[in-house]
Design a protein around this nucleic acid. Structure first.
Lengths: 234, 234
DNA sequence: GGTTGAACCAATACTGAAATGGTTCAGTAC
DNA sequence: GTACTGAACCATTTCAGTATTGGTTCAACC
């Protein structure tokens, strides 16, 4: 045998193909990528080439992998998440939004103090994915990853756990997730601008600016949530 | 057949027998009791009688039961405790103080918005207790109660859970509790003034003022902590 | 150097049987 | 009616065995 064994730049070819898969977002089981063996056969490359490509994507913070589990889009879950889920209190959408308003601006401020250049690159990559996402599911995925990365970069274990607490509740309350979805292209463009502004302040090490930008962003989300709830009541 | 079906006070007899088992402590797998069916046959009673006895013991807090799991001596495991246990080794006094600085000012602001006249009275009573305490232990106790009440009045379950988490971690960091103790009468007087200022802002429904007053207070505590740590290093 | 294919390792998920507390019901004895 | 027994069934959890998946190593090929 010894079919084709040479494809000098297969790693890069596969990398770009997987990048396209991520961009288009058409995955059989959405947040999860096909396993390495299947990617290998489907893309006509060795498993080594596939793994090289995945390693690059993981370094960029676009995917995460776990032995025995699989490869997934976004950021890895907080290790304390399982424990956190045990104590999440029941909350209504408005109080969850209130908690976000009181937690995340502070996290953005700390993030601005502590982010490295590499961190900023990752934040940008995630913000780009939010903007490039065609469907609401992908947007939600990447938006969640962006906010979580800010919380992680803030680098305070207790505050990160508090964030996870809030995030768990938010994820569990599926009934109201639709409400937080942008209803128009204008809103989407606004969110993209707000994300950019937050990241720019972080890059400039402007803590108060990052805090303010995050506050503005969440106030916008909060307003939309209230409007959507009032709409249903009326 | 229909052997003995009457044992008019079987529940009580079984209850006492199980009590003896617990007292003597000779259980095959120690913290765990034999399952209900086995107890039933071994003690010559119906399962109903055994369950009645176990219900009484559970109400007393001597045992706890979980479907599919078993019956065990002592109190049920506390999920929050497990979370705290995981966070404590990964956190140092400064990061806990940082979390306080990012959580409590917001709680004070919410508190100012939501406190009733009765709430303010209770806050004042606690602040008086702090000021009147003669020893460091009781000061710590009442000071903790004051800050916790502010968090409760803020009336957001998520933020309250986050605060409780932080509070428990703080309590668990025994190695550094001495450091946070005021070292002089001047400091004590300053803390008393700061507490008063926080409560006055809350009473005046001045959210930003309460936030600022709490920030000032925590910054003072933070400065003392740093000074005490630098002292030990030098 | 990079690539391929194959095998093996280690962590995780999955499946099905068994164990366990929770519940209901008919029957029995007082 | 009240209390107890026995049996059946339900819901949750555990456990053991299997399959899946990423992680690693190796020989061979260009």
């Amino acid at each position: 045998m010894t079919l084709e064994a040479r494809n000098p730049d297969n790693t890069n070819r596969v990398l770009m193909q997987i990048r396209r898969m991520i961009d288009s977002g058409d995955l059989p089981e959405h947040p999860r990528l096909p396993n390495e063996r299947e990617l290998s056969t489907r893309l006509g490359a060795g498993r080594r080439a596939v793994r090289n490509a995945l390693e690059a994507l993981e370094a960029e913070g676009l995917i995460w992998r776990r032995q025995g589990k699989g490869t997934f889009l976004g950021l890895p879950p907080d290790p304390a998440g399982a424990l956190v889920a045990e104590i999440v209190p029941a909350s209504d959408p408005l109080s969850v939004m209130e908690a976000r308003l009181y937690l995340e601006p502070g996290l953005a401020e700390l993030c601005a103090r502590r982010a490295t250049g590499e961190d900023v690159e990752r934040l940008r990559a995630l913000a780009d994915r939010v903007a490039a996402s065609g469907d609401a599911d992908s947007r939600e995925l990447w938006d969640g990853a962006l906010h979580r990365l800010i919380a992680r970069i803030a680098d305070n274990r207790l505050l990160l756990t508090a964030f996870s607490l809030m995030d768990e509740v938010r994820m569990n309350e599926k009934w109201q997730r639709d409400r937080q979805r942008a209803r128009s292209a204008e809103k989407l463009a606004l969110y993209a601008r707000q994300h950019r502004k937050i990241i720019e302040a972080i890059e400039a090490r402007d803590g108060p600016g990052a805090r303010q930008a995050m506050t503005d962003h969440l106030n916008e989300l909060s307003g939309n949530l209230r409007a959507s709830m009032a709409e249903d009541d009326g």
